[in-house]
Structures are given as structure tokens and as C-alpha cells.
């Protein structure tokens, strides 16, 4: 059974349908990457999974449990199991790095603060920011903020980590530190779904690649197959442009 199974998902922004039936699976411990031109709906897929954009049709299953996005309780359950890291980090500006990481585990999961803090410090060490626990987000560089955002997501103890273009807001020299963090997580067996423009990285870490265009999945396959031998003209055209650079 796949860890995450998405099938036939439609989603709207207001009256406009932006996803027209998205389907793909992510295996336990696997990494699936969503690639495609901007505006193709990749980020919307992640937002829909955590209920920030409302799914209108289709099903999402985690370990075989169907999530009914019409029910607030089901959305809470989904958010319990999936954590999202945003392109713009979205760290809470009014809190220290440590409190960013501990807020939800303490307030929502009602775990003891001391335990959560110890774990958060371990996670900050994992992303290489053990010494920044008491700093405020706007005292950090973009790359550091993004790594904090990953630590904050991990502090929720998610089954599945969703990463939304986590390197695209960063200066090129900061991209490496974030990619290293993701590599380390994949070594530890975390199930991840990522949206990325870093084609080299996608190719290296992904088990499967989903190519999207205009709110639809155009084709799915192994990185080698998608990048080297795309079946669709749309994908061939896209990679022809992207990979040449």
C-alpha cells in the first residue's frame, strides 16, 4: 500500500478550477518530486493536501485512510500527519526560532514543554542551527530561515513532509545547505513530496517524478525516464528548455 495516494483530485481558487484531476502515489520512505512550468499547480497540490486550498473532488489516502476534506476534523487529522514547508519559510516573526518549533507541539499536541524543547534543539542541530535557538527569524539569512522552517515542520513529527520550492527564494550559495538537510532526511527514511526547480537535485534524490502542466499530471515515471526519455511532447519541450541551462 502506498504511504500517500492521491487520485483524481480537483481543487478551486474561488470559482476557478486550478487542479483538474491529479493522481500519483508516494511509497513509504520514498521521495516524489512534482516538476513542471510555473502555474502548473504543483504548489496547489501541496496546499490542497494540508487543506489550505479546498479539494472539490477526488480522494487522498494516507496509509489507506481516506481524508474527507469537507470535514474540519478530517483536515485536522491530515495536518497531524503531514507537515508543509513553504517557499517563503513563513516563520512566525514574533517568536524565537525555538518557540517557532515548539508552539504547535506544546499547544496542539499537548506534549510537555521540556521534552518538546529538547527535541527541537536536536532538530535544530540536525539542520545545523543549534546556536540559533534564541534568535528571531529576521536575524537569520534566508537559508537559515528555511532550515528552521524544516526543523519546525519536523518538530510536528509528521509521517510525510511536504516541501514547496524550498530553495527558490534563496541565493544560490545558500541552496546547498538546504539540499543537504533534505538529503539527510531522505537517508533517515522520511517520506517526502517535494516541488522543486532544482532538476539536478530532483534527479538525484527522487524515487519518482511527476510532471505537471496546467493543473494536470502529464506523465509520471522514474527520474531517468522522465528527464532522459519523456514520452509527452509537453515534457520534452519543457525539459529541453530547462535542462539546457
Amino acid at each position: 500500500m502506498p504511504h500517500l495516494a492521491v487520485s483524481g483530485v480537483h481543487a478551486n481558487y474561488g470559482a476557478l478550477e486550478v487542479l483538474h484531476g491529479i493522481s500519483f502515489d508516494v511509497d513509504r520512505g520514498g521521495i516524489v518530486s512534482l516538476v513542471g512550468p510555473s502555474g502548473s499547480g504543483k504548489s496547489t497540490v501541496l496546499r490542497t493536501l494540508v487543506g489550505l486550498t479546498r479539494a472539490t473532488r477526488g480522494t487522498v489516502e494516507i496509509d489507506g485512510d481516506v481524508i474527507d476534506y469537507r470535514s474540519a476534523r478530517a483536515i485536522r487529522a491530515a495536518r497531524d500527519r503531514m507537515a508543509i514547508v513553504f517557499q517563503q519559510y513563513n516563520l512566525f516573526q514574533n517568536m524565537t526560532v525555538l518557540r517557532n518549533c515548539t508552539l504547535a507541539p506544546v499547544k496542539i499536541k499537548r506534549r510537555p514543554r521540556s521534552e518538546v524543547e529538547a527535541e527541537a534543539r536536536d532538530l535544530l542541530a540536525l539542520v545545523g542551527l543549534a546556536d540559533k535557538a534564541d534568535a528571531y527569524p529576521d536575524e537569520l539569512s534566508g537559508g537559515q530561515q528555511q532550515r528552521v522552517a524544516i526543523a519546525r515542520a519536523l518538530a510536528l513529527r509528521p509521517d510525510i513532509l511536504l516541501l514547496d520550492e524550498v530553495t527558490s527564494a534563496l541565493d544560490p550559495e545558500l541552496v546547498g545547505e538546504v539540499l543537504d538537510t533534505i538529503r539527510r532526511l531522505s537517508d533517515e527514511g522520511m517520506t517526502m513530496l517535494l516541488v522543486s526547480h532544482e532538476m539536478g537535485f530532483v534527479r538525484e534524490v527522487s524515487n519518482a517524478v511527476v510532471f505537471m502542466d496546467a493543473g494536470r499530471v502529464v506523465e509520471t515515471g522514474s527520474p531517468a525516464q522522465i528527464f532522459d526519455a519523456p514520452r509527452s511532447d509537453r515534457a520534452r519541450d519543457f525539459f529541453g528548455k530547462v535542462l539546457r541551462h
Binding site: F86, A104, I108
Partner: peptide
């Protein structure tokens, strides 16, 4: 609004 979305995605309620 992104601050609110980050909080909601972490399961914080509207009041929290």
C-alpha cells in the same frame, strides 16, 4: 496571510 496559513497548516485553530 502567509503567517496565518503557516499556523493553520500546523493545526492551530482560528483563535490560537
Amino acid at each position: 496571510q502567509t503567517q496565518v496559513e503557516a499556523a493553520r497548516a500546523m493545526n492551530l485553530g482560528r483563535l490560537q
